[in-house]
Structures are given as C-alpha cells and as structure tokens.
Design a protein around this nucleic acid. Structure first.
Lengths: 336, 336
DNA sequence: TTGTATGCGTTATCAT
DNA sequence: ATGATAACGCATACAA
C-alpha cells in the first residue's frame, strides 16, 4: 500500500537504519547521504507510520488534555493556548472532557491514557476530584492548569491575591456592605473559589469590615447561577452596595438580575468579576484579568520541555501568573 | 515492563489469538473462556497497546478535528458536540487548529493526518480554503461542519433560509431600510455568509424592497468588527431602521456601537442575529438559533458510522439541521 | 472453538 | 558512517 521506510531505503541504496537516522536528524549521518535521503523521501511522498514508530520507540508523541468543559470560555481559551504550543512542538493533542454538557459524568479518562499519551494536562479539576486522582495515580508526566496541588506541577494565578484585589477595589471606593458570589456552598480546600474567598476575607478583615454570611451567595460559575445568586442578594432586607463575583460569567448573570430589579451596575450597585472574559469589556464590567491563554500555553511548554529532557527533576511547585485589575463602569464610589 | 497480551494468555492458559478475540468481543469464543480471560485481564490490570494494535490492524481509532478557531463560541460548541460522540465511541479526538489566535497561518494539517487518523472532521473552513483542499486531497473519510461542498459529506444549517428568516422578521415588523452586517467584502461562493446574504436578498426582493449597497457593512464575524460595521451604518446620511447581523457576535458589536451613539436596540433600531449564542438571551437579542452542538454531534456520529461500516456508500449530500427564530427585545415594529 | 505463525513499520543495539 | 537484525505488541489468515 503506502510507502514504507524500506522503499526509501531501497531507492536511496542504504539501509532502513540509515534512513531512520537521517530523517530524524540524528547525528552520525553523512550530510550528503542525509540530503539524498530527504530528497528521495519527499519525492516518494513518504510519511512515517506513527503506530510503528510509537511501538518501536515507546513514545507516543501525544499529550492528553482533560477538561470538565469544552464550550465554556475559560476552558476553550486555555485549550487554545495549549494547542498552539503542541502544534509547534509537533505533538498530537488528545482532547477528552470529563463531564457532558448536561452535567452528567462519563467514563473515567485514566484507562484511556495509559500507553496512549506521554503526558497529561488537566484543566480546572478540583484537587479532590476522583477523576483527577485516577489520572495522578498513573504517575505519568502531568501538569495542572488553573489549580494548585502540593507536589504536582501546575500553572495558575494566585487566586487569593485575585480575590483580594477585587475586594480591595470595592473597599477603596468606600463600600462596606460587600456581597460575594461564590461558586458552590461546599467549599473544598485548595480550590480557586476557596482561595478567592480567602482573599475576599483578608481584604475585608484588613479594612476592619465584617464578613456577613448573609451577603454570600452561590452562582456555580454559570450565568444562570450568577443571576440567581444576585437575586438572592438583592431580595434580602439589607442588600449590599457592592458585589464581588468570582467569575465574569457569574457577574454577567448578576447584571441580568440587577436589570430585572431596575438597578444599574456601577450606579446603584458596584460589581466586580474575575476573568477578563471576552464580553467583559462589552458589558463594561470591572474585572481582575487573568492570562487564560497563557495559562495553557505555559503549562504546555513546561510539559513538552519535561518530556524532552528525561531524567531532569521537574519543579513541583506552582508557576504563578500575574493578574491585573481593569476598572470599568460597573464599579463606582459608594453614594452617600 | 507493562503487561502484554502474552501475559494474559499465559495466565489464562490460552493463546494470544484467543485473548485478542475474547477481549475485542469477536464471535467464536466460548463464553466461559471469554469471561475467564476478561477477569484475568482485569486482575492483571492489562491495557492494550494502541500502537501495536494500530500497527497490526491498520486502523488508528482516532479522528482529527480541524478548526480555524478553538476559543470562539461557535467552534468550541461544535467541538463539544463532536467530543461527546467520539468519547462514547471510544475513539481518540485529535485537535488541530489551522490559524493562531493572532490570525497568522501555520503549518498545513494534511501531512499530520496521513497514517495518523481514520477520518477527519472540518469545522467552518470555506470551500476555497487551501488547507481544506489539502485535507480533501487525502481522500480519507471526511465530513464538513457548518459548510457545504458538492460531493463532500457535510452537516449544516440552511444558511439561505436562516438569512431569509432573519430578514423576513424585520420586514414583517414594517422595516424597509434594512442594513446587513456581512462577514467579509469578498464573498466566496458556497460560504455561509454568501448563502445568508442570498437569503437576505431573496426576502428583500420578495417584499419588493431594494437592496441598497450603502446599507451593507462588514464585521468579519467578530465583536469588534460588528461594532465597526454598525458604526459605518449609523454614520451615513440615511441610516437603516433595522439591521441583520450574520452572527450574534457581530450583533453584540453592533449593540455596542448603538450604545455609543445613544441608541437602544429594539427601540431606535431593530437588530437580529444568527447563532443562538449563550449571551444572546442575556443581551435580549433576537436571533436565528442554529443547533450548534448538534452540528458537531451529528457529523461525528455519521463519520463514526461510516468508519464502522466499510464499503457502504456514504451520502455526499449535506445533512441540513433546522433553525429557529427566537424573538426578543432587540427587534420591534418600525415607528411611524 | 482454539492455536500457529506471519506481518505490520519502525527503532535501537550491536557490529563493522 | 553505515548495515544487519532483534525487538516492539498485537491482529489475522490459515490450520487444526
């Protein structure tokens, strides 16, 4: 059927071993021989058989990306960062999500990883996630994105700082009754939401402000959830004058709720998010921008580097990327 | 190192051939034998070597998805539909984009496809795209998503109808000066934008309304582009009373431009989009919803089916999925 | 129903 | 610098 390395070897009058060395750029090949082989391979339209190469070498040349969601802004943006790197590195990107769009669970990814990829990139799975632990138990080169686990390489922002910056911004504007739209009620340690909440608490405490449990609501990182959470905050006896939403999408939902109540963000209630979502500028939302694309890019670069330098000890501490507050119209000084 | 089929065979007291058959669910295996082999394989924690299996069988069990963008709503949503199917089918999903986030081009995907995947899914590349033709020239099972080419299997909506529905809605509201925000000035045939424009023209013509070239602007399917396009429409001597944007994201940009001019969608100017973008409800945008997730899902299902039924002739005509107009606040009757 | 044996296309070791 | 050849782990045609 297809052209094999033997065909190239025969046409070049050399052995398959030499062809293999020449085409892979290994040393100890006469430059004239190499060029001739390369030319012949091109002429014959030869393409290597990945299966055979993988079987013989033991390396797959591919990396799996595991993510809970594909179609959400944060995850698809991270994914694009990862893809650009793997593309340049000539590695295959195997995509697998661990939850359906309907939120149902699916088959665990771990069995589909063994003998199939050289490394794994995991986006946004909380440290206590069962699927994540299965993956980690495989003990293959792995890097986490957007979350930090002790002893596991990762790339993330400092979520405590992010939460603090967002909250401090509201405090600086004179707000004292500050609500927070969290992810889920049950906050597991080491998650982004937990850290962001700690940053919130720290900023409040430093300013001598109380953290009122009544001013905490849960938006599950979705627009609809943010809307419900904001509604809950607005319908109580003493609503906050400012709200910190832990993600832009929840902030969007909060905006919707405000609109339903005839309130205008930045005029009636100040609102700040975290993400730097594409639509945040459009909606004039003040937000703590995180370099989402770079999160994926840098994690992928680190993993590729690790795979190419065997034996080298990899740093298991997190790589922290900076965030930046972008002030827009959704926040303003507290009215007297 | 790892457990091989031979280890399982030895432990079960059978040949590797029987193990191979038993584990793959092939017929002509004693059920007792099969169960025993399955149990032993599980006990031994045996996982098949994909490389070896692929080399021996000639099938890779993987499908490539080629897309111009990963982080945009439409593409990531299609991708999630594809992924859910391939996951269930037990096939690997190789993701490769053909343009960087900065819009630069990159290495052609075709060479990275040969001998590497069993089939290809292409999202949104126009029929005259060079990369697309390289892929098609490979003559492997391929399906297009969101675009139609004669002789190539595809899944798409009827873009002519979509454009017509959107425009007709505006006409029904009494609008006569209707602007259109197109993709790019140079309209290639068989593209979605071309079809949508034809639908626009048809609706206008049917209603006896003129198609004014001055009321056409280009938004390149981005928010920023939509904003510029709308600005161009608004700053001319005789602005339209209604605008048809060929995508929701361009409509979002159009909304932004309107806001800058002190105009309110649905009050001062009616605006309709196409997509059913996540944010369209939030922004109260009237839009022609297309089943984006299903586009990916159905294309993937068809391709998997084709790969599993060798020799069967595949229909090369497009599978058309229905669209639906959702009327929201961004459109209203023309004011006298 | 099960076993035997060959081939799949490369890589890598060891010679030369 | 190059060649010969043994793995690599499985699928499958053919036998039994």
């Amino acid at each position: 059927m297809a052209i094999t390395i033997k065909d190239v070897a025969d046409a070049a009058g050399v052995s398959t071993a030499t062809v293999s060395r020449a085409l892979r750029g290994l040393p100890n090949v006469d430059s004239a021989t190499r060029e001739r082989i390369q030319r012949i391979a091109t002429d014959l339209d030869y393409v290597i058989s990945p299966s055979a190469s993988r079987l013989a070498s033991g390396r797959t040349g591919s990396i799996a990306v595991i993510t809970p969601y594909i179609a959400r802004w944060y995850f698809s943006t991270v994914l694009s960062g990862v893809e650009s790197v793997l593309q340049s590195a000539g590695m295959d990107l195997l995509l697998m999500s661990v939850s359906t769009p309907e939120g149902q669970h699916r088959l665990p990814p771990a069995p589909r990883l063994r003998r199939r990829v050289d490394g794994v990139l995991v986006i946004g799975l909380p440290p206590q996630d069962a699927q994540l632990h299965e993956v980690l138990s495989l003990r293959m080169p792995t890097s986490l994105i957007g979350l930090v686990m002790p002893g596991v390489p990762s790339v993330a922002i400092d979520d405590v700082v992010a939460g603090q910056i967002a909250t401090q911004h509201l405090i600086n504007l004179g707000h004292e009754r500050i609500g927070v739209i969290n992810g889920a009620p049950i906050m597991s340690p080491y998650t982004a939401e937990n850290d962001r909440f700690r940053g919130f608490e720290a900023a409040m405490t430093d300013a001598g402000l109380p953290v009122d449990p009544m001013l905490e609501a849960y938006g599950y990182f979705t627009i609809a959830g943010g809307e419900q959470a904001m509604t809950a905050l607005l319908t109580q006896k003493n609503p906050p004058t400012a709200v910190f939403a832990m993600s832009d999408e929840m902030a969007f939902g909060a905006m919707k709720a405000m609109r339903s109540h005839g309130l205008v963000p930045g005029r009636d209630i100040s609102l700040v998010g975290i993400d730097g979502h594409d639509m945040s500028e459009f909606l004039d939302l003040t937000t703590v921008v995180q370099p989402v694309h770079d999160l994926g890019r840098i994690a992928a670069e680190a993993l590729v580097l690790q795979l190419r330098s065997p034996g080298v000890e990899v740093p298991t501490d997190a790589i922290r990327l900076p965030t930046q507050l972008i002030v827009r119209g959704s926040t303003s000084p507290k009215r007297a």
